[in-house]
Nucleic acid binder design. Structure first.
Lengths: 148, 148
DNA sequence: TAAAGTTGGTATTTATAAATATCAACTTTT
DNA sequence: AAAAGTTGATATTTATAAATACCAACTTTA
């Protein structure tokens, strides 16, 4: 019952989401292909979007249209997020993980085969859910560095 | 004498730099206007570029042309650099400094009026000189977090 | 079971970022 | 003092990222 009332509940089919966002269905699917979003998928492979997904996509569109950051730019900014700190990854995992080593995309597009993330659903991960704008990513870095 | 031999020595007039980089003079000036580069300026306001400047501009062009990151994207990535850590800024300076608070451009485009950076020439600062690609910025974050 | 909606794919359009061209005034060099 | 180069500013071109349109096959809904 609690879950039902959260912003995370996947409720909107893609067409409804597109209408809310005032964009085309295919634009949303492009964002998925580019690894900017991870929609919920039903067993039949149909996508469902939550209120939080709508917020997230609105943020992406603002980055593109207002801040004039390209999609590849957004992916690179996502790559700056110190996911290994949030997830408390072991040193050995870090060096097996292209999310740690690389800087071309978000961790959920890069996760290593043998890390603790490999078996997880990134849609439910805090790195994905809570850090999708530049401000919150920089804020995370600040907070972590403050504890040195 | 030692200085004369470094990569930092400003030696190329803008036209020469443009020829080396195989771009137009105005493209270089646009990068400066966008705060991606800080050319050395003679007393007559004419620009001079060092070997290091050439490397830096080549890196910027690769980000634009190969990685497909827009100029505003590059500026936002620069904004992720924890300059306050490298500079050991006082807490009080941090909260007066838009480089710390903002995330729309590099610190040298944002430095606060009353911080220790205000009177410095950013061209000579390590933040500007040593952290101009995504790899080195992420690496800095990694290294700093490791010492927690 | 008919209507409405979704899937992945390719092809096309559109919007605009990035780069270039042009300009008169000024500076440096030889 | 003439030639070469630079300055900032505006206007224009070009390259392409972002978004849209279209498609046949499949799924859901009522």
């Amino acid at each position: 019952m609690f879950y039902e009332s959260t912003k995370e509940e996947p409720v909107y089919p893609i067409r409804t989401a597109a209408k809310i966002l005032n964009i085309s269905v295919h634009t949303i699917r492009m964002y998925e292909k580019e690894n900017l979003i991870i929609p919920f998928k039903k067993s039949t492979n149909h996508r469902l979007f939550s209120k939080s997904d709508i917020d997230r996509i609105n943020c992406i569109r603002s980055a593109i249209n207002n801040s004039k950051i390209s999609i590849n730019g957004i992916k690179t900014i996502y790559a700056m997020m110190p996911c290994w700190e949030l997830m408390n990854c072991a040193k050995i995992d870090q060096n097996n993980c292209s999310a740690y080593l690389d800087h071309h995309g978000p961790c959920w597009a890069n996760k290593g085969e043998n890390t603790k993330c490999a078996s997880k659903n990134c849609r439910d991960c805090s790195v994905y859910k809570d850090y999708w704008d530049c401000g919150s990513i920089k804020k995370f870095i600040k907070t972590k560095l403050k504890s040195i």
